[in-house]
Each structure stands twice: as C-alpha cells, then as structure tokens.
Simulated scan of single mutants.
Amino acid sequence: MLTNRRKDAWIAAVLVAPFLAIYLLVFVYPTIQMVMTSFTDAPLIGDGAFVGTENYERLPSDPRFRTAAWNTAYFVALTVIPGTIVALAIALGVSRLAGRMQAAILALFFLPYILPVSVVYLIWDWVLNFQFGILMHLFDLLGIDRVPITKSRDWFMPAVAVVTIWWTSGFSILLFLAGLRSIPPEIYEAAELDNAGRWTTFRRITWPLLWPVTSLVFTISLISQLKIFDQVYLFSQGGRPNDNLVLVYYIFQRAFQQNQSGRAAAVAVVLFILVIVVSVLQFQLLRLAGGRK
C-alpha cells in the first residue's frame, strides 16, 4: 500500500509539473516582477532606483489616473449588468426554437464572439464613422444632425459599451443556454398543470435555477470589463484619447509612450488588487443572494 501511494504521488507530480512550471513562469514570476518594479522609477527597459511607495502616493493626485478609474467604473456599469440581461433575454428566446432554426440563430449571435477586435472595430467604424457611417446616413434621412460619436466625450463610452455587448454576448448566451437545458422539463410540466403563467414560471422556476449560471456570467463579464483596453484604444484613434482613458490604457501610456515602467507597474498592481477584491466580493454576494432564493 505504501509503495502504491508513493507511485501515485510521483505520477501526480509528473502530470502536474508541466502546468505548474508554465504557471510559475508565465503568471507568478511576472507578477512578482511587476510588484517589485512598482517600487522603483524604472524605465520600460532596464532597472531603476528604489523609490518606495512614491509611485502609489502619486496616484490620488494624478488627474489622468482619476479619469481612467472613473471611465473604467462607468464602462463596467454600462456593460456588465446590461450585457448579462441581454444575453439572458436572447438565450430565453433561442431556447424556444428548435432544429436548424435554433442552430442558425445561435450561430448569428455567437459569430461576433470569434471575431478579432480589429475586425470588430472596422465593422463598427463603418456604422459610426462621422463622414461615411451607415448610422450617419440614417440620421440624414431622418433629418437629425450628425453626431461624431467616437469623438464625443459624452457618447464615446456608451457607444463602446454597445459594441462590447454585441461582441462578447455570444459566450454568455451559450452559458445561459446550457443552464436552461439542464433544467428538468418535468418542472415546467408541473407548473403548466398548476396554470402558472410565463412570468410566474420564469420568476419561480427559471430564474432561481439559473442563478449559478448567472453568477458565473456576471463574474466573467466583470473581470473582462475591468481590463478593457482594445476597443477603447482603437476607437480613440484620431479623437480624444486622454478623455477616454481606462486603467489599462493608462498603463499602456505610462509604460510604452512615456517610458515610466515603475509608475505603470504601480497602476497595474492597483488594478490587479481591484479585480481580485471586486470579483471575490461580488461572487460571494451573488452566492449569498442565490442561497436565499
């Protein structure tokens, strides 16, 4: 028995070792280096002098950091809950279809998710562009003045939020569909025998049983949107990038445009801690709320 246990332990160690090595090399080591760099005035390439917590102390008084933090929070508010609701509504509609029609409609909603961000940007630039965008021509037909959506401070974040929901909702729809298919049909049959309406069935059966999937979708979406960068960077070209700053964009500017790796690392550490804390807190709150259902 002792020999078997040792053999099993060696086999387990051999199987786990490649993943552990890659994890330490790709995630743990860079994270440690990032934290160490945040306490220096290092440039993008090379070492820097130790400055203690100076990089962190500068952040509250940095107006661009405050702008980036506010824009990130605003973007999360525009995308996480609305995106979850949109994905759930579409999944409920698709679940009522069957056969090839269901597969075709599901493919249409999932197709944007597999597109690279550059393609998504080009598609929506054809729609929103002030000079030749399809939406601008529609405004002309309706007698509405054209709006430079991607150049306007008020319209930029809502427009990028709509693009992001369109782009990323396909994966959430699949998760909701999987959750819907895991609900036993006998429960709905029993509710139908009790003359329960659609709203009552959704509120009393579908929604509580979908709560674990909803928590998962919400958590994944929250983590993704806190790290938003690609869409904001692309749509800001030729516009007002400093007004549209988000935290990752701010890190990019500090590190790659201003050659201030130490200050960029400090912001990255703050974002890293923020993602962990917010994700854990909201997941626990959702789990507690689900337990009360």
Rank of each mutant, 00 (worst) to 15 (best):
M1H: 12
R5F: 10
R6D: 06
A9Q: 15
A9L: 15
A9C: 13
A13P: 04
A13R: 08
V14S: 14
A17H: 14
P18T: 05
F19L: 11
M34T: 15
V35I: 15
V35M: 11
T40V: 00
D41Y: 05
A42S: 06
P43C: 07
D47A: 12
G48V: 09
G48Y: 09
A49M: 12
V51C: 08
T53D: 12
Y56R: 07
P63S: 10
F65L: 02
T67Y: 01
A68M: 02
A69D: 07
T79Q: 01
I81W: 02
G83Y: 09
S95E: 12
A98C: 04
G99F: 03
G99K: 04
G99T: 11
M101S: 07
A103N: 14
I105A: 05
L108I: 07
L108T: 06
F109S: 04
F109A: 08
Y113V: 04
V117K: 09
W124S: 00
G133Q: 06
H137L: 10
G143E: 08
G143V: 11
I144D: 09
D145N: 14
R146T: 09
P158Y: 11
V160H: 03
V162E: 00
W167T: 01
L175K: 08
G179A: 02
L180H: 11
L180S: 02
S182N: 15
D194V: 06
F202R: 12
R204S: 08
P208C: 14
L226T: 02
K227F: 03
K227G: 06
Y233V: 00
L234D: 03
F235R: 00
F235A: 02
Q237N: 09
V246Y: 07
V248G: 04
Y249C: 06
Y250W: 04
F252M: 02
F252E: 09
F256L: 14
R263M: 10
A264C: 03
V269Y: 08
L271T: 03
V275A: 03
V277P: 05
F283R: 12
Q284M: 09
L285T: 04
K293Y: 14
